[in-house]
Design a binder for these strands. Sequence first.
DNA 1: ACGTAAGCGAGACGGTACGTCGCGTCTTACC
DNA 2: GGTAAGACGCGACGTACCGTCTCGCTTACGT
Lengths: 202, 202, 202, 202
Amino acid sequence: MMQEKKLDRRAQRTRRALREALIALILERGYEAITVQEITDRADLNRGTLYLHYRDKHDLLLASSNDAYNELLAQFTPISPDNLTLDIPERHLIIVFQHVAANADFYRVMLGEHGVAAFLTRLRHTVTEVGLGRLLTLQKLTPTQPVPSDLIAAHAGSAIIGVIEWWLENNMPLAPDILARYTLALTIDGIYQTIGLDKPSQ
Amino acid sequence: MMQEKKLDRRAQRTRRALREALIALILERGYEAITVQEITDRADLNRGTLYLHYRDKHDLLLASSNDAYNELLAQFTPISPDNLTLDIPERHLIIVFQHVAANADFYRVMLGEHGVAAFLTRLRHTVTEVGLGRLLTLQKLTPTQPVPSDLIAAHAGSAIIGVIEWWLENNMPLAPDILARYTLALTIDGIYQTIGLDKPSQ
Amino acid sequence: MMQEKKLDRRAQRTRRALREALIALILERGYEAITVQEITDRADLNRGTLYLHYRDKHDLLLASSNDAYNELLAQFTPISPDNLTLDIPERHLIIVFQHVAANADFYRVMLGEHGVAAFLTRLRHTVTEVGLGRLLTLQKLTPTQPVPSDLIAAHAGSAIIGVIEWWLENNMPLAPDILARYTLALTIDGIYQTIGLDKPSQ
Amino acid sequence: MMQEKKLDRRAQRTRRALREALIALILERGYEAITVQEITDRADLNRGTLYLHYRDKHDLLLASSNDAYNELLAQFTPISPDNLTLDIPERHLIIVFQHVAANADFYRVMLGEHGVAAFLTRLRHTVTEVGLGRLLTLQKLTPTQPVPSDLIAAHAGSAIIGVIEWWLENNMPLAPDILARYTLALTIDGIYQTIGLDKPSQ
DNA sequence: ACGTAAGCGAGACGGTACGTCGCGTCTTACC
DNA sequence: GGTAAGACGCGACGTACCGTCTCGCTTACGT
């Protein structure tokens, strides 16, 4: 932050152009297939200029994805003050889905077939850990049940990522709040209850 | 298969060596970071020899992953004939987990941080589609409920992938059949019922 | 020599092409101004190919100049057998001048304004040392004279280089044997005797 | 000169620092190997500042070498007025050697292995032409002799350069006036007479 | 003496060349 | 026919310098 403030206006312009070019190109052809030359061509810069600001293509990717990431995290904090009711998870989910919608192109490519495995892994772990925190509180109520908490968290976390991928692949057919309600139902109540079936006796 | 039959014994040896070298190296350093030279060095072959059998590194990866994939699919078919009871999903899950355990190193790397995004995507879609088939039957019973079937399938499919990743990352702490039971409970009954809680009234 | 024998016919062709291209380009634009790309363009090769055979532009220059150099040295040895008379210096000079004439373009550029200082220095030292050897024998006859032998050798050696440069700059107006006679006279007898003057009494 | 007067005190300081840095660095590593950054680092200036005063590295070199050169030429002119005796060449030689001694480091590097070919060529031509002037007068006395005047001048001119190089390489073991006497003897009387030998009858 | 033009530091930028790496193709020779 | 050995064209890489260009700050000068 501080160091970004110190940047020349030219340098800021340049960095922004590079990030936008990167995202645009990843979208078109996938991260691995892109060349530094292509990024800088798109950003109307000399190839060498990229190296004045980033160590390499991967460093630029990190910076770009951190942009999006930090923006998301920034929206989480201001929730806490007043009400800490049970609907916080739903609110959080809505914020996530809204953020994904706002950066749809970016997420579509990062999570897709030509995406960046490390990004997906990181996102999955973040989501899972947030879920795990809430879960540990819940589980104090039923200390004897045998299913490991982190298995449950991994199940739920990955499921949410899957929902995001489904949503993006289908051009976001549902509103974020609706999607959040459905997702939460599936995760917490399971398939039977969500679709209105009693569990059949085997 | 047929064409494999026709192969020189030397050629078979060569191909096997290449595949094993690839898997071993992916495990150590990740797919993208590996060079053809390294693969052939490990396989004690000349670099050019790889191109006598595969088009490039990626072609070798496909062949290698199809080996594992086909082995899995081969185990699915013989189930159908006699009983089509409700426990088929559980049986399938057990088979999948057993197969993952048998090829743990391979899956660990393909799904991990340095893995191959396309492989994960492919696996996710396969799992999701299998689930979707069963789901469509179920949903005929409650035709009015609003949650899209493929959303549910995506949710469940990704969740299973997440479970596999959790299992591998934690060195497979549970037996395949136990893991299958837990997973199915979480997917179908949801978190509350699985851990033995009533849904709280908000 | 031995290692050159082992070379692929392709590799030999390539090396020859590179050396010829280098000489041709030095002639046109001077050594420092030339680019590796230009050398390989001229030699109808890919830029990278140069690095398969030489470490860099300078290494190619060394190899090229050693070609010429070795060719010269090869002509010196076979003189010895029969007559070792006093006219050996003249014969040697003739051989040198003939060799320069045969490689006129090469020497013209290496010694010229855009030449390679190190090459000139090396040539000067070689010539000087050959002269020094003969001189030391001569000086045994007059052990008391004060002028240092290596000063005399440096004087004579540089003078011969100067003659070569003059000869090349003026498009070799004299035959090698005539030039050798004149040069030897100037060096050994000095200007006055050479042009037929008595030394004036100051 | 005039324009130097107009210069800011800061600018004068800067130019001096640059020239000194250049000479010092050439001495250490040779002209071609030096970068502008290194020059300005040494001079405690910003890289861009060099371009406020000189067009490039080469322009700075010219300015620096002209400094030395002009200083030498300035010492030549005041000789002419009174006596035009035969010892003028010796006097000139002494002046040259003294000047070289006073700028030993500079000449050592400019003429050495990593020197600047163009500088050497220029110096050689200057020396040669001065000699040629005197020679033409001499040759009027023996109009029929066949050795071209400019060959003689080239021979003598290069020989003197060689003497200078020898002198510098050996840390100036003789006093300038002694060296001038020896050099003149070798040039004018030749080796035999200088070392006190009669020319042997072949 | 003091305001203003200059010198200057800092560093972004477009360029050009470098030497290296990895690829996929090809040739040559061996077994 | 399957390999080894390795030359070759190709394309991209990250680095090094170059010469130019703002952008501010500081410093000597001229009135």
